[in-house]
Amino acid sequence: MHDHENVREDEHPEIIAHNTRLGLMLFAVYCVMYGGFMGLSTFAPEVMKSRPFGGVNLAILYGFGLIVAAMLLAVVYLFLAKQADSADSKAA
């Protein structure tokens, strides 16, 4: 009934725990950024109209920033997440 393809990764609970913690931390970071966008747009729309640099308004800069941040955090995760066949797992 259950898929046995991932048995190798299931055998390393410490890797799973590490990756889960990493994922949740990065998720929390993004929540703060996304929440900031929601908060400003809702409660301080004049701030979103301001033009901090480049002559472009914050609404656009923040919007682009959120999109780019998502991509960057995903890449960070790729590099920091552990694999089942990494040296750490062999040592464990």
Partner: peptide, 28 residues
């Protein structure tokens, strides 16, 4: 309209960091 772009894309963060791997582990 761009708000939807931002929201739709941000949703992938939830997918990748919270759901993706546990799902793969769990399901068939």
């Amino acid at each position: 309209g761009f708000l939807y772009s931002i929201g739709y894309l941000a949703g992938w963060i939830v997918a990748l960091f919270v759901i993706a791997e546990p799902m793969k582990r769990l399901g068939r």
